[in-house]
Structure formats: C-alpha cells, structure tokens
Amino acid sequence: MGACVGCNRKKLIKMSLEKALEKRLTNEVKKMKGLALKFWCVSFTGFPDRVVLIPLGKIFFIEFKDTGKKLSKRQELVHKLLIKLGFQVWVIDTQELLTGFLNAAKG
C-alpha cells in the first residue's frame, strides 16, 4: 500500500466520523418521515450543517463537529441567535449524542 501524498490521517478519520454521523442522521430522520437537509448559506456564515424537519412542525438545527472540537466564535453567535428565536440547536460529535438527539426528536 502506497503513501498518501498530502493526506492528513487525522483529517481522514474526522471526515469518516462526520460522514458516518450525517449518514445515520439522514437515514433515521427518513424513517421518521422527515428531512435532514444539508444547508450552506453563502451570505450567512456559521450556520449549522443540517436543518432537520420532522412531521408536526418540528425543526432542529444540527452542527457536526470532530469529537471534542469547539465551535468557532461565529458558530457560537449564530447558534445563540437561533436559540433566541426559539429553535433547538444540537452540536453532535459522537454516536451517543446523535442517539440522544434522535430520541428527543421522536418524543
């Protein structure tokens, strides 16, 4: 097996975890007959990675992070704004936190 020129092993592991979390979120939300939309806003930085829409008008904002990583100052500001507007914002960096979110969304 050859060396990966320019690859950062830590970054590859991070991407794998985040992809696994996002894939699980998307699959589980589909089972609830909801949508887990990947959201990217060019003119408004710091917005969470996913907007989750669950039947009966439930809306959640989900930010995926590498395990133990902190939000940027801009992300903190945007999350506080969304919370002030009455929305739930979840920062998920482990399978356990994702399970907690899914249980809360079902309830």
Score class of each variant (00 low, 15 high):
residue 82 L to H: 04
residue 1 M to T: 14
residue 103 N to E: 14
residue 59 I to Y: 11
residue 63 E to C: 09
residue 25 L to T: 02
residue 93 D to S: 09
residue 80 K to C: 11
residue 104 A to N: 08
residue 23 K to V: 05
residue 60 F to P: 00
residue 67 T to N: 04
residue 87 F to M: 12
residue 38 K to W: 13
residue 58 K to S: 01
residue 11 K to H: 10
residue 29 V to R: 00
residue 62 I to Q: 02
residue 8 N to F: 05
residue 41 C to F: 13
residue 97 L to W: 06
residue 31 K to I: 11
residue 62 I to E: 00
residue 83 I to P: 07
residue 49 D to G: 04
residue 9 R to S: 10
residue 28 E to A: 11
residue 69 K to Q: 01
residue 39 F to D: 09
residue 8 N to Q: 05
residue 53 L to P: 09
residue 44 F to V: 14
residue 77 L to P: 00
residue 53 L to T: 10
residue 105 A to E: 03
residue 4 C to F: 02
residue 80 K to Q: 15
residue 84 K to D: 15
residue 19 K to G: 13
residue 25 L to D: 07
residue 14 K to G: 00
residue 97 L to F: 06
residue 102 L to R: 07
residue 93 D to Q: 03
residue 8 N to M: 05
residue 1 M to P: 11
residue 12 L to P: 02
residue 86 G to I: 13
residue 71 L to W: 08
residue 31 K to E: 15
residue 98 L to P: 01
residue 107 G to Y: 06
residue 84 K to G: 15
residue 87 F to Y: 15
residue 68 G to W: 00
residue 66 D to G: 01
residue 86 G to L: 14
residue 52 V to C: 04
residue 1 M to V: 14
residue 105 A to R: 01
residue 76 E to L: 09
residue 94 T to A: 02
residue 52 V to P: 03
residue 83 I to A: 11
residue 100 G to D: 15
residue 7 C to A: 15
residue 9 R to F: 07
residue 35 L to F: 13
residue 88 Q to V: 14
residue 101 F to I: 02
residue 57 G to A: 05
residue 75 Q to D: 02
residue 17 L to D: 06
residue 45 T to P: 04
residue 89 V to H: 00
residue 53 L to N: 11
residue 89 V to S: 02
residue 23 K to N: 10
residue 68 G to C: 01
residue 100 G to Y: 12
residue 24 R to D: 10
residue 93 D to P: 01
residue 35 L to D: 04
residue 68 G to K: 00
residue 74 R to W: 09
residue 7 C to H: 12
residue 11 K to S: 13
residue 94 T to D: 03
residue 22 E to S: 14
residue 48 P to Q: 03
residue 34 G to S: 06
residue 12 L to W: 08
residue 100 G to M: 13
residue 88 Q to A: 14
residue 10 K to Q: 15
